[in-house]
Simulated assay, not measured.
Amino acid sequence: MLYGIAAAATALLLAAALTTALRALAPRTPLGAARPGGRRAARNRNASRLGGVAVAGATGLVAGTGAATGLVPLGSTTGTLLLAAGAVALLGLLDDLRPMGARARIIVEAGAASVVVHGTHLGFLTGALAVLWIVFVTNAFSLLDHSDGAMGVVGVVTALGLCACAGAEGLGPLAVVLGLLAASLTGFLMHNWHPARVTPGGCGSLFTGFLVACAALLVNAGHEAPEAPAALFALTVVVTADIVLVVVSRRRAGRGVLREGTDHIAHRLRRLGLTAPGAAVVLGAAAALGTTTGVLLHRGAVGASLVWWLGGAALVAVVLLLRVPVYGGRRRVRRAEAERVDLLRADA
C-alpha cells in the first residue's frame, strides 16, 4: 500500500517534470509545430505534441524500477502488456513525427494486441474479437485528443476504475501499472489543462487507450457473458459514444469518415456554450458514471441489464448532440471560425 502511494506520487511528479522539460525542447523539434490542417488546427498552435512521451515514460520508468528492485514484480502478463503498450506509444510518436497511413497503424496495434490477448488463453473467435476491440478503443482514445484536457481526464477516471477492478481480482502488478498511468496523466494534465501548453499527441493517446483497453480485457477475462461484455462497454462508453457520433454525423453530411474535423462531443459542447475546461469536466463526469457501472458489474453488485440503461443514455446524448450544427457552407464555416477564435481569446 505504501509503495503504491509512493510510486504514484513519483509518477505524478516525474510526468509533470518531464512535460516541463519536453515543452522547453519542443521548439527545436518537429513536434513543436502543428500539422497543417491536422487535428490541432483548431487548437493552440503553440502547444507541442510531446506530452505523451512524458506520460508513457513516467509510467514505464516507475513500473520498471519497481520490477527491477523486486518491490513489485510485474510478472509475465503485466510485463508483456507494458512492453506492448510501449511499442504502441513508439508507433504514436513516429506517427507524430511523420504521419503514416491508417492501415500501417492498425497492423501494428493489432499485432501488439494479439501478443497481449494470446496470454489470456481465449478461444480463436473470442480472441480475434478481443483484438479488434482493443484496436477500436486505442484509436477511440486517440480521436478523443481534440480538446484541452479531454483525453487526460477520461483516461485518469477509467484507469482508476480499472485499478480497483484489478485489485479486486488479485492482479496487484496490473493495479500498480494502472495507478501509475492515472498518476502520470494527472501530472501531464497540469500542462494540458486549458489553455494547453502541450498535448499528448499520438504517443500519449494511443498508449493510454491501448493500456486501458488491454487492462479492461485482462480484469474481465475470467468472467462470463453477459457481465464481461457489459463491463467492457461501460468502461469505455464515452469514447464509444464519441466514435458513433462522429461516424453517423459525417455519413449523414456526406463527409469522409476518416477526415479530421471539429465535430466531436467536446466541440459540440463548446458550441452549446461550455468552455474547454467545462467540456472536459462533462466528459470526465460521463466517464465516471460509465466506469462506476463497469466496476459494479465486475464486482457482481448489479446485473448486466443495467448496461442497457447506460447505453440508452449514451444513445440519447448522441441523438441530441447530432442536432448541434457543425457543418455548413463557406460563409457559415467562416462565421464559426470567427466565433471559435473569439472563444479562444476569451478563455485565454
Rank of each mutant, 00 (worst) to 15 (best):
L206G: 02
G4V: 09
L274T: 07
A166Q: 07
S142T: 13
L125T: 09
L90T: 04
G101L: 09
L322S: 06
A346G: 11
L245H: 07
G328C: 10
L322C: 12
A304M: 08
L93H: 06
A11D: 04
L272R: 15
L61Q: 10
L91P: 00
P195L: 04
G179T: 09
G328W: 07
L185A: 06
G79M: 10
V157S: 04
P226Y: 15
H267C: 05
V177P: 04
A63W: 05
E227V: 14
P99Y: 12
G187N: 05
A42S: 11
T59S: 13
E109G: 00
L160Q: 02
A348P: 00
T65F: 14
P229E: 04
W193E: 00
L174T: 13
R259I: 08
P73R: 12
M100D: 01
A213H: 00
G172A: 15
G86Y: 13
A338K: 13
S184L: 02
G79N: 08
S184K: 05
F136M: 10
A128S: 11
A304W: 15
V341E: 15
A287P: 07
M100R: 10
D347L: 13
G273I: 06
V55E: 06
P30M: 12
A164F: 11
L81Q: 07
L343M: 13
V238P: 01
G254E: 07
V108G: 00
G149H: 14
R271A: 13
A234K: 11
G179L: 08
G92L: 04
V157W: 01
A276K: 02
A63R: 12
R255M: 09
R35I: 03
G32P: 09
A8I: 02
G311V: 10
T240Y: 09
R330L: 13
G329N: 14
A287M: 10
H146D: 07
L129W: 00
D96R: 05
C163L: 14
A34L: 04
F233W: 13
Y3E: 13
S76L: 13
S205E: 03
L258C: 06
A6G: 12
V176R: 05
F136A: 14
G152Q: 05
R197I: 00
P200L: 14
L71A: 15
V244I: 15
N44D: 15
A113T: 03
R197C: 08
T240R: 09
A16R: 11
C203K: 02
G300S: 06
D342W: 08
L125W: 14
V246L: 02
V88N: 02
R251L: 11
W133V: 02
Y3S: 12
I265E: 03
L83H: 07
G149E: 12
T138N: 01
T69Y: 08
R39G: 05
L322D: 09
A56H: 10
V156W: 01
F207H: 05
H267E: 04
L74V: 11
P226I: 06
A166M: 03
E224W: 03
V307G: 09
